[in-house]
Amino acid sequence: MNTPLWGIDLGGTKIEGAILPSLNDAEAILRMRVNTEGSKGYQHILSQIQTLVNRLKQESGLQPQRIGFGTPGVLDPVTHTMKNSNSTALNGMPLKKDLEAMLQIPVEIANDANCFALAETHLGVVNEKYPAARMVFGVIMGTGVGGGLVIDGKIWNGLHGIAGEWGHNFLDESGGPCYCGKTGCVETVLSGPALQRYYKSITGNDVSLKTIVQQQGTDEAAAATIKRLHHFFGKALSVITNMLDPDVIVIGGGVGNIDSIYTEGYESLRQHIFNNRLDVAIVKPSLGDSAGVFGAAALVG
């Protein structure tokens, strides 16, 4: 009998836990959520995690041997403290050490983009359609832009713990300043808010990305915004394709729901890569908002 896999997705507003029967079964035994309440500080976040784990134990009647955690930001492999987290209470904190002391079991930690890539590899679209894939690059294009790399079914974290951080490669000066301190990052060009800013720079109007997509047939500024997306999507992903040459690229996040990136965006990628043809599959994910917590569980699979 397989040992159930426990995963917790630590988000900015909610903490979700799930227990999966195995790495091959996405039918969760149990899923639960609590509010993060991050504004109350780091120790409160830890106490919310403890509350969730206790509830999962009580409801399931199971005891975890290990727990995987998906987190905003990453655990620095040298200092063993969190960095690059938009949940700022976590930054500089020894999260893994503190969780293990609190829960009295081993834990594994990976950032949310890596968990997304891992979940889609084992339990989602890659497993369904490309089971022989050895290298998978997972992209999240939403409020921010991130990426995660899975090789032979395992997350590749890299020497600094930043492998896959595609969103903070330089793309184009026109993106302007990024919160990371640099200018023209992929995130400043391809994120949802970046596309909305570009549209506003042309029209002076604040509209949603959904409206921009809907109006591109009748609104020249909307059409120009989506054309810009296609161009820079291909240009940005060409760096990943040239450097890593993955078998599959999975596109998550709200921007990933724009159908034309899989046609016009794909054509832009074809034009920019260092090859005379493009074979890599670029696909939508199949797990939806389950990917984070399922990927966390897959860390201990």
Results as ranks from 00 to 15, higher is better:
Met1Pro: 11
Pro4Val: 02
Pro4His: 02
Leu5Met: 07
Asp9Arg: 03
Thr13Asn: 12
Ile15Lys: 02
Ile15Asp: 01
Ile19Gly: 10
Ile19His: 11
Ala26Pro: 09
Glu27Ala: 11
Ala28Met: 06
Leu30Trp: 11
Arg31Ile: 14
Arg31Phe: 05
Arg31Asp: 03
Arg33Leu: 08
Asn35Tyr: 07
Thr36Glu: 02
Gly38Cys: 02
Gly41Cys: 09
Tyr42Gln: 08
Tyr42Trp: 07
His44Gln: 13
Gln50Gly: 11
Gln50Pro: 00
Gln50Ile: 05
Arg55Tyr: 06
Lys57Asp: 02
Gln58Arg: 13
Ser60Val: 09
Ser60Gly: 08
Gly61Leu: 10
Pro64Ser: 03
Arg66Val: 15
Gly70Met: 10
Leu75His: 01
Pro77Tyr: 04
His80Leu: 15
Lys83Tyr: 05
Asn84Tyr: 14
Asn86His: 11
Ala89Thr: 07
Met93Ile: 00
Leu99His: 06
Glu100Tyr: 01
Ala101Val: 08
Leu103Gly: 11
Gln104Asp: 14
Ile105Pro: 00
Ile105Ala: 02
Glu108Gln: 15
Cys115Gln: 06
Leu123His: 10
Gly124Val: 01
Asn127Leu: 02
Pro131Thr: 13
Ala132Pro: 00
Gly142Val: 12
Gly144Cys: 05
Gly146Ser: 03
Gly146Glu: 01
Val150Pro: 12
Ile151Cys: 14
Ile151Val: 15
Ile151Lys: 06
Asp152Met: 01
Lys154Ser: 12
Ile155Lys: 04
Gly158Met: 09
His168Asn: 08
Phe170Cys: 07
Ser174Arg: 10
Gly175Cys: 07
Cys178Phe: 01
Gly181Asn: 08
Cys185Ala: 03
Glu187Arg: 01
Thr188Arg: 05
Pro193Lys: 03
Arg197Cys: 09
Ser201Ile: 05
Ser201Thr: 11
Gly204Asp: 12
Asp206Ile: 09
Asp206Lys: 13
Asp206Trp: 00
Leu209Glu: 01
Leu209Gln: 05
Ile212Asp: 09
Gln214Ala: 15
Thr218Lys: 14
Glu220Trp: 00
Thr225Asp: 06
Thr225His: 10
Arg228Ile: 11
Leu229Ala: 01
Leu229Gly: 02
Phe232His: 14
Gly234Cys: 04
Lys235Tyr: 08
Lys235His: 10
Lys235Glu: 14
Thr241Asn: 12
Thr241Phe: 07
Met243Ala: 14
Met243Asp: 03
Ile249Gln: 04
Val250Trp: 07
Ile258Lys: 05
Asp259Val: 02
Asp259Met: 01
Ser260Pro: 00
Gly265Trp: 09
Glu267Gln: 15
His272Gln: 14
Val280Gln: 07
Ala281Ser: 11
Val283Pro: 03
Asp289Ile: 10
Gly292Leu: 06
Gly292Cys: 08
Ala296Asp: 06
